[in-house]
């Protein structure tokens, strides 16, 4: 292995662990924050980290979608939703229950089991050494080719979700 390959392998490891650290820390902060708006902002950082992972996997299109849809649309919607629903005090808007300790032990137990099984498994190398190229065309071929049924069903799913949101959200004040 020549010197350049080693450097790039080390670099990508460093970048990966850095991103993983950011994702986990901000995900934890999002869950534990007492303030719902802060949680939404922490979530945006987590999404950015995930977008970074996509870039490392050479999934350029997914990374852009992640940023545009999750950070650009969903997070902003969430912040608006929080602002529009009336609350007296933002400091205690993200309520926790008292099962923290029990949840910690269950989560730790699961973590140990999952890690043990993951480490013991030999994973096939999915990371290819393909040259970097745009993936938008390949994704389009897959969505409108072999995965067409799933694609169309997802379209109907979004339609149903929209109709349902309108019905359930409509006329709240008319009833009163």
């Amino acid at each position: 292995m020549d010197f350049n390959a080693i450097v790039s392998a080390v670099m990508s490891n460093i970048v990966f662990y850095l991103l993983a650290f950011i994702i986990i820390v901000f995900a934890l902060m999002m869950v534990t924050s007492k303030n719902l708006v802060h949680s939404a902002l922490f979530m945006i950082v987590t999404f950015l980290g995930v977008a970074g992972i996509y870039v490392m996997l050479q999934a350029d299109f997914l990374a852009v979608v992640q940023i545009m849809v999750y950070i650009g649309a969903i997070s902003i919607l969430l912040v608006f939703g929080v602002m529009l629903s009336r609350r007296d005090n933002m400091d205690r808007s993200n309520l926790n229950n008292s099962f923290g300790v029990a949840a910690f032990f269950v989560a730790a137990f699961l973590f140990v089991i999952i890690t043990r099984l993951m480490v013991a498994t030999e994973w096939i190398g999915l990371v290819s050494t393909r040259p970097v190229e745009s993936t938008a065309g390949q994704i389009a071929d897959l969505l409108l080719g072999p995965n067409m049924v799933a694609f169309e069903a997802a379209g109907l799913l979004l339609l149903v979700a929209m109709v349902g949101a309108i019905i359930l959200g409509k006329g709240v004040d008319q009833s009163k």
Binding site: N147, V149, A150, A153, L157, S175
Partner: peptide
């Protein structure tokens, strides 16, 4: 479905529809 992606989308189509129907009686 004969693959996992289609299976999951079908499952969510069913589940989301059921969520709406469950909450229908406002």
């Amino acid at each position: 479905s004969n693959d996992f992606i289609t299976l999951y989308i079908g499952l969510e189509l069913m589940t989301i529809s059921f969520v709406i129907l469950t909450a229908f009686d406002r």
